[in-house]
Write a protein that binds this DNA or RNA. Sequence first.
RNA 1: GCCCGCCUGGCGGAACGGUAGACGCAGCGGACUUAAAAUCCGCAGUCGCAAGACGUGGGGGUUCGACUCCCCCGGCGGGCACCA
Length: 878
Amino acid sequence: MTDRIPEPAAEAAPRYDFRTAEPRWQDAWSARGAFRVADAPTDGKPKYYVLEMFPYPSGKIHMGHVRNYTLGDVVARYKRARGCSVLHPMGWDAFGLPAENAARERGIHPAKWTWDNIAAMRGELQRMGLSIDWAREFATCDPAYYGQQQKLFLDFLRAGLAERKESWVNWDPVDGTVLANEQVIDGRGWRSGAPVEKKQLSQWFLRITRFAPELLAALDTLDRWPERVRIMQSRWIGRSEGARLGFALERPADGIAEVEVYTTRPDTLFGMSFLALAPEHPLSAAIAARDPKAAAFVAECRSMGTSEAVIETAEKQGYDTGLRVRHPFLKDRTFPVWIANFVLMEYGTGAIFGCPAHDQRDLDFARKYGLAVPPVVLPPGADPASFAIRTEAYVGPGTAFHSGFLDGLAVDAAKRAAIAALEAQGQGKGEVNWRLRDWGVSRQRYWGCPIPVIHCAACGVVPVPEDQLPVRLPDDVSFDRPGNPLDHHPSWKHVACPSCGAPARRETDTFDTFVDSSWYYARFCSPGAAAPVDRAAVDHWLPVDQYIGGIEHAILHLLYSRFFSRAMRETGHLAVAEPFAGLFTQGMVTHESYRAPDGAWLYPEEIERRPDGTAAVRASGLPATVGRVEAMSKSKRNTVDPGAIIDRYGADTARWFILSDNPPERDMEWTEAGVAGAYRFTQRLFRLVEALDPLPRAPRPESFGPAALALRRAAHRAVAAVTEALESFGFNVAVARLYEFANALAEAERAAADPGMGWARREAAGLLARVIAPMMPHLAEELHARLEPASPLPASPLVAELPWPEPDPALLVAETVTIAVQVNGKLRGAIEAAPDAPAEAVLAAAAAEPNVARALEGKRMVKRVHVPNRIVNFVVAG
RNA sequence: GCCCGCCUGGCGGAACGGUAGACGCAGCGGACUUAAAAUCCGCAGUCGCAAGACGUGGGGGUUCGACUCCCCCGGCGGGCACCA
């Protein structure tokens, strides 16, 4: 496709040539090592660790990357200027399925494909002018990284944080691999979209559940995380309080005498109507073995499980087994045992007691099969004689009734009393349950980190000895048949048992790639260490002060990382529990979408916008349909290539536009007009500074004329305002303040003859160059270099190495303030006054303002409100 | 169904409870130009000649004063969803 992004229009005025300037400054930063930091610095500066989620090396960066890394770079450059020693690294999340797909589809080795992509993307990122310490770069597919990961795993294994379990797994038949629960979405594989099957396999698990209470409780300490991320995690961990209790079968069947149930509502036990088993429950299986109808029902549930349509309609279905159980409190009563499709084997005990009056699912089920619905919680103020359940279960507060010894107790007290009674009878106990499951990390894949164990017929699972790490992936693999190439490899898996020396077999599974990204933040502190981390380095740099990335990682990646820091703490690798002290989740980059008359999606470059707002296909002139503004995606072809934008406008322009459009947590719309506007501003700044060139260095004047003083005030106020905006992630506001700053400097050109103006303009320009630097670092250097020979500001070769300017407090105080004057809350005028002028004088002046005086005429003064330097409000009557 | 977020000019958005619409984009007028582009100077919430009135999704409330705080309702977006 030909490149149809238009050149910025030619200009007559002198123009800033970003094409030569940007590489020049990038070289200058690199030559001076401006962004290098030590693993364990001793410079005494406060540390600041800025990290953006590292990219998957797909081959090209996209606008989401540009936004992510621009945000991080602004923070990094700002914090550096504020005197911090800033760790700002970059690396590659380099294992994963696309590399294997490339191998299968195009015959390229995954390693070559990955490293070529990394080289290409590194070049693109470097063109953005990011202040990254590139000496720390690593890729997770490098044995130097994954070998350390294997070492970590062996430590976890020794510490009991990793274990092998025979378990039902989610099997993706298309990808030919096991999926974590989190990777199953609506019963389908998150990547392939294929219906997931249940399969029993021996798998490696990381015991994240061991930290469930801590992972939940510590969320409260993450006060610089978005609230919604914390809520999502807390729901995912899913703590619930309740009771586990046994129901004795009236007549033991199939060798089973009792069914265990988990409930969060032991207070409603007297409202029981039935007991329900999951189709996968052992008792269900036992019944099915001798009851063909039960078997048919169980089979039906299993086949339904994967159909999306059925899951969504989710009708309750059950099968009455004919068995009955005794009630723990009502000794003379028994209840039917059903197998029900809505009971999950994975949660609790795989069996429930049904209390239809106070649980909607149980109610739906009871209504369908005509089961009893006895209410046992009375809402406040309801009449016990007439209270009845119709189509909605009552789940609110109330007091127990029809409930024997619980009668009269409020819900919480009744729960405690019921649990106490169960415990006294030895039939149950209070129990806290968690939704979080252990993390299955085995994947039947080639392009991942090998799990460093050996299976020996005699010795069982034997860890690979440390001196034999890393367990390297073999290079000579073929992808010509489905399944795991490691398993097919003729020799790789055949090894001697490290323990007994007998022939044994290597583990051929590799780690879930989420493992790779769960500790990379720690590795960045000492990327060359011979151990997973250097303790001094992680103790210095961790936690990450500001982590920035997409909301799509709100649960998995962030939760796994929080687990890893704890696991690494337990195994002595680091000291912090929480890896990310601050988290910022950016919005997506969106763009208009376009369609040709035949319905095909078109790239933005293929479209011409007409002045009347319509769009046409460039090549044919036919009318095109302008579609929704939505997230950039290849399928909709509404993508914009960052490389092409940087070619045409430069990195600073791209950075500036992306920051200026809107608040960074919201979705932004990429528009051609917006980029063009940002580009014009870079040229304007350059012209403003160029106009100062011929002026010689001069000492600071004794006094300034009114226009020069006004400029100085505007400049120092702007510095203060930009500082405040940057501190609070208000980048779009910082941009607005910088536009105002530039406008003030431009306006000053017209009062060039004002006393002291030459000096004031150069001071302002110097300040401007330095405060735009976090956002437009190349232009900042260019402006600074031009000003330097004549600048009254302290000399230094690079803005990147200069401290952040401090505004002069004297210039931040206004000479006069404008005070708005209201009458009965309506604006009637405004007066100028000296700052902090006496209240009586201000009130008198306000009342005398002609428009105000007119509004006050003939009225009785009720109240006079005076907010110093802000507003006066006269409250009148009559 | 539950949870979270959002709703301000043509558009993106700004605004410690204190002059709503800063700043930018698009637009309009003017200067420069043979012309255009670029640049520069201006205008610009709506209605109104003006005075003024109205105006931050709708309705109520607190307050001298509400985009901002509280309650109710509506719309849009996102997340979770048989978790007992």
